[in-house]
Each structure stands twice: as C-alpha cells, then as structure tokens.
C-alpha cells in the first residue's frame, strides 16, 4: 500500500485539508509604524504592554493574540483542543507561560524563526490525522527579549552591522479546524532539512538561512510536481534584504525562478526609512505578516495560493562563541483557497 499522505521525499499532503478559520496578530510600536498598520489587529503602545518585564510582555502579547483569534469565532480557550506554539526564548517560556493561563493542551515548538510554519504544519497533521477538530498554532517574538538573550543590553551603545536584522515584536495565532468550514486551507507542507553552508556571522542570519530556503522551495516544487507560478506568492519568513538577494541567486542556480511571485516577510514588514538595516526577523515577522496582510489578501481573493516558507537560524550564543557555523532550516506550508 502506498502512502497517500506523503508525496516525494519531504512533503506531506493533507487528505482533508484543515481550514484556517480565524487568526489574529498583535505587534509592537515599531511594526505599527511600518506599511501594514491597518492590517494588524492591535498595535502595542510600548514594549512593556503594561507588564513589569519584557518577558512578561511577550507572554501577554502571545496569550492575548491567541484569545483574540479564538474569540473572533466566538470560541473560548476551552473549545480549543490543542495549542501548538513556540518563541525564541530559552526553554520557550513565552509559549509555556501563555499556555499556563490558557489551559489548552500544549505542545511546545522550537524552530527559531521557522516556528510559525512548524506549528501550523504540526497542528494540521494533528487535525488531518483525525485526533483533534480544532487547534491553534501560534508564535511570538519580542525585540528586547531577543536582544538581551542573543546580543547586548538595550541601553548599550553599540553599532549594528549593515547585514543585521531587527527582531520583530509581534505575535500571531491561527485557529485551524477540520475541513468542513470555508476559508483558506492548509493543503500541503514540506518539512525542511537542516542546511549549513558554513556561515558563522550571527549578525547576518539571512545568509545562513538562504540555502535552506532555496532547498525547501526546490524540494517542495519537485515533490508536488508544481512550477513556481502555481503560487500567486511564494514568501520566505525572514531572510531580510541580504538573505533574499542571496536566495534569488540560489534560485537561478537551482533552475527554479519564482520571481516575480517571490517576496520575503523580513523585507516587507518595515519601511526602508525605519533604519532596521537588513529588515525584520524573528518568529513574529512571518507570523505578523501572515495573520495580518497576507491572510487578509487571501480572504479578499487577491491571493489564491500562497506558499509560506518560514526560515530559522538554529544557533545559540553559546554555539556561536564556540565557533560553530549556523544551521539553517526552512519549512514550507501551502495555503490555498479551494
């Protein structure tokens, strides 16, 4: 008996594709100053969000985003059977602390900035597997919690390198349900391999992740036997300006050229004059773009088929100091209006 649910080497195809029935996003003040303000549900006035620490603020942001996504369909957290969530902090505390209050059965995910796609495809597998009818996939990242964990204290007077990216303060949550409702569906997903091309500069994660993104996109198209123009938009998570310039070169090398349908959330999320250097990054980057403008455009019918390729750089400050190169990963999820 052949496996109908897996296609090619790395792609899973959902038999009864789960539907994205509602979603929400809360972002930070800087993201609110970007081009998509009206597409986000809520823009925080400051980075504390009424809490005593940035970590608490991130937890609150994630928790409130999930509550908001759930309430849009008049559900309460008790109606949700599974929460699949992750963030950038050590021991993914933002997610588990949010789950502590929401009391939804919880699976923690860590895929660095690729966590949104990882959570979505895990939740979708749980639903299409027939175990659950309703799940929520969510992620968060916060500029100041990420800075203090991965880089420098906030008030330290340092110069950021030109290739460094700005961690997006934002959370996104998507409610997925068994495919009996209308709405964009998660039809298939490609689980990426770790690709490490020996890049070591932790201030240039776009370069470290670009080969993984190129590999996953190529594998996805091969596995599904699709051409790049099958999708109205192929969007990577947070390669930023440097990474997306590199991935375009790699597309040419691989013989798959999705342009002009290709873009990158890290490039899109901020305006050029916001002084982020190479654009946005972090779990919240593609989560905010997905749960903000992208899904909105899908509902409006402006995008019928979207391939979200969330990219992650799986290093820690410890491995960087020990001279290890940065392992990159990318997971792709295909969202389609059927």
């Amino acid at each position: 008996m052949t496996n109908q649910k897996k296609q090619g080497s790395q792609t899973i195809v959902f038999e009864n594709p789960p539907v994205l029935t509602s979603w929400a996003t809360i972002v930070g003040p800087k993201e609110g100053e970007g081009p998509w303000r009206s597409d986000f549900d809520w823009v925080m006035e400051d980075y504390e969000f009424g809490e005593k620490s940035w970590e608490k603020a991130e937890t609150k942001m994630l928790r409130e985003t999930i509550k908001l996504a759930v309430s849009k369909k008049n559900y309460t957290p008790e109606d949700i059977e599974l929460m699949v969530s992750g963030d950038l902090l050590n021991q993914i505390t933002s997610s588990s602390f949010a789950a502590r209050e929401l009391q939804i059965p919880f699976l923690g995910m860590y895929g660095a900035c690729s966590t949104m796609a990882e959570s979505l495809l895990t939740a979708a597998m749980a639903i299409d597997g027939g175990y659950f009818e309703r799940a929520v996939a969510a992620v968060s990242s916060h500029y100041y919690t990420a800075e203090r964990q991965f880089r420098f204290p906030a008030e330290q007077g340092v110069q950021r390198s030109m290739s460094s990216q700005w961690t997006v303060t934002g959370a996104g949550a998507v409610v997925l349900e068994k495919g009996i409702y209308g709405g964009p569906r998660l039809t298939c997903a490609t689980i990426g391999k770790i690709i490490d091309m020996g890049q070591k500069d932790a201030n240039d994660m776009g370069s470290a992740m670009a080969p993984a993104a190129a590999d996953t996109i190529k594998t996805h198209l091969n596995d599904t036997d699709r051409s790049p123009d099958y999708y109205d938009l192929i969007v990577t998570g947070d390669l930023g300006k440097v990474g997306s310039a590199l991935v375009k070169q790699l597309f040419i090398k691989n013989g798959v050229v999705p342009e002009p349908n290709y873009s990158d959330c890290g490039v899109l999320i901020f305006n050029d004059n916001q002084d982020t250097h190479a654009g946005g990054s972090g779990c919240g980057c593609c989560a905010a773009m997905l749960c903000g403008p992208l899904l909105k455009k899908m509902v409006q019918g402006k995008i019928a088929r979207l391939l979200l390729v969330a990219t992650g750089a799986l290093m820690s400050p410890t491995t960087s100091f020990q001279g290890e190169s940065i392992p990159g990963i990318a997971h792709a999820v295909a969202l389609e209006n059927l």
């Binding site: 290739s163 890049q199 370069s207």
Partner: peptide
C-alpha cells in the same frame, strides 16, 4: 557560497 555572500552583503560604511 561564502564568496557569493561577500559579494551580496552591504559593505560596512
């Protein structure tokens, strides 16, 4: 790939 990265990266000012 490293050569490609160095070509693409913005030069420090």
């Amino acid at each position: 790939y490293d050569d490609l990265v160095n070509q693409t990266k913005p030069k420090p000012t």
